[in-house]
């Protein structure tokens, strides 16, 4: 599915990704974890083509995606900060993104699911953070894409919406899709993720299931397990 080879990226003098290799061969939910500045967002953005790597290659279904754009038809992305052009209404934004991608969508179900029907004609500038995040989620999940990339999908969400979101994760996973998530909420990771990809200093430090992580670190709690990974590094 995704194959990343020897990816390097520097921002100025800071090496953010160092010869990063990553292969994701099957569907499922992959949690990309790592401390701040470990290169999570850079990795995601590299896959999306928003960050241009200095060297290395990213293959999607065996084809390099660098300098390409139409592969993004197979990807949807939920950005961390949901800030939309303020002068548009919710429905206009949805219509616009639909129009840009030009493929089948399921926004109506999602609108109902998140209870957004009454917000459709509101201008985006007037929405609260949580509501914006719901719009963000609708925009992401209304497409039927092979690869779904989510940057902190739970921020600002109320518990009800969170439950809906988890359900969505499950259905998408059942369809055989690949979902990449970055999050700081370890309970969510433990609950939904099939595998953990742990980044440290621009490298994959650990890749495997939650269970494997616990076993490797001899910890029962995932947070401790991760803390252990970090301290191990320091030793």
């Amino acid at each position: 599915m995704i194959n990343i080879k020897k990816l390097n990226k520097k921002f100025g003098k800071v090496e953010v990704l160092k010869d990063l290799d990553l292969a994701i061969t099957k569907g499922g939910i992959f949690a990309i974890l790592g401390p701040n500045g470990s290169g999570k967002t850079t990795l995601i953005k590299s896959i999306l083509g928003m960050v241009i790597p200095d060297s290395g290659d990213i293959l999607l279904n065996g084809k390099s995606v660098l300098k390409k754009w139409d592969y993004r038809n197979k990807i949807t992305y939920l950005p961390q900060i949901a800030n939309f052009p303020g002068n548009l209404t919710v429905i206009e934004l949805i219509e616009m993104i639909k129009n840009l991608r030009n493929c089948a969508t399921t926004e109506n179900e999602l609108i109902d699911l998140f209870g957004m029907r009454s917000f459709l004609d509101k201008k985006l500038v007037n929405l609260s953070g949580g509501t914006k995040q719901k719009v963000n989620l609708i925009l992401t999940f209304m497409f039927d894409s092979e690869l779904i990339i989510l940057d902190e999908p739970t921020s600002g969400l109320d518990p009800v919406a969170l439950i809906h979101l988890k359900k969505i994760f499950q259905t998408e996973k059942d369809k055989g899709k690949t979902i990449l998530i970055t999050t700081h909420i370890m309970s969510l990771v433990e609950e939904i993720s099939d595998e953990i990809v742990f980044l440290l200093d621009g490298k994959i430090y650990f890749k495997g299931t939650v269970q494997a992580l616990k076993t490797q670190t001899n910890q029962t709690n995932i947070e401790h397990a991760i803390a252990h990974l970090l301290t191990e590094e320091n030793v």
Partner: peptide, 10 residues
């Protein structure tokens, strides 16, 4: 932000 939204689109 809008630009970033667009950048993730095909």
């Amino acid at each position: 932000e809008f630009t970033e939204l667009l950048l993730a689109q095909p």
